[in-house]
Amino acid sequence: MPPEQTSAPSHAAVDRVVDALARHGLTPDIVWFDDAVTTAQLAADALGVEVGQIANSLVFTLDDLPILVLTSGAHRVDTHWLGEQLGGRIGRASKEIVKEATGQVIGGVAPVGHPSPVRTVVDTDLARYDRVWAAAGHAKTVFPTTFDELVRITGGTPGAVEPPPGQATADA
């Protein structure tokens, strides 16, 4: 386990995540790193876990409305394929849309703690792991959780975020 700071700093977005988790009956330890862990690989290396255990929080737009995709750090979202599965067109969200939808900035977007609910898809690949790690509202923070908890606390829909092996793909 990475070294945690003895007195965790305070940050408004992290506090909102902690409050949202508490409303769902969860009180996980928020891990604060000395440096930002803005990629799945950096987070996995810092935690000493597999990259697939990192639940990336990616905000896209689906027909111009924000959508949060919680995906395993082991692969990328196939936006063309996922858009077809969801019956719309997925596009890249601007940093302004990410901030407006989640109250958080790119690199630290948590699955919860948003100003209002955001439609969420939870990558079923995360279910392979007993423990997964998600950002906690700041690029220097993560918290442990499970696939089932992610689905429950986000009200998300479990689903694949890329086509099954052997099916044609489009790059994300």
Rank of each mutant, 00 (worst) to 15 (best):
V109G: 05
G108Y: 08
S116W: 10
F147Q: 02
G103E: 00
W133T: 02
G113E: 03
A135C: 11
D125Y: 11
A135G: 07
G103V: 01
V118F: 10
K99N: 01
R152D: 12
V132A: 02
V122D: 12
Y129G: 09
P115S: 07
T102L: 09
G107Y: 11
V118H: 11
R152F: 00
V112C: 04
P117D: 13
D130S: 12
Q104T: 03
F147M: 00
D148R: 08
V121R: 10
A134L: 04
I97G: 05
A134Y: 04
A101Q: 05
V151N: 10
D130R: 14
V151Y: 13
A110K: 08
Q104L: 03
V121A: 08
G108R: 09
Q104A: 01
A101K: 08
R128W: 11
I153M: 06
I106V: 15
T102H: 10
D148N: 09
I97M: 13
P111C: 03
T120H: 13
S116L: 09
I153C: 00
P117C: 08
F143Q: 01
I106P: 01
A139D: 15
G137M: 08
A135R: 13
T141R: 07
V122S: 11
T146E: 01
E100N: 12
A110I: 04
V98T: 09
S116E: 14
G103H: 05
W133I: 06
A134R: 05
R119E: 14
V105R: 12
G137N: 02
P111M: 09
I106G: 01
A135Q: 11
A136V: 03
T120P: 12
F143W: 03
V122L: 13
H138Y: 10
R131I: 15
V118P: 12
H114S: 08
D125P: 00
P144V: 07
R152E: 11
V151H: 11
P144F: 06
V105W: 12
K99S: 14
E149N: 08
K99H: 14
G103Q: 02
T120Y: 09
D130F: 02
T146K: 06
A134M: 10
R119D: 15
P144S: 03
D123T: 06
T120S: 14
R131V: 15
T124G: 10
T146Q: 06
F143A: 02
F143H: 01
I153L: 10
E149K: 00
G137W: 04
V118C: 09
A135P: 01
A136E: 05
H114G: 07
A110Y: 03
P117V: 10
W133D: 03
Q104W: 02
G108N: 11
V105P: 00
F147S: 06
Y129K: 08
P115W: 03
P111E: 08
I97K: 05
A139I: 00
D125Q: 12
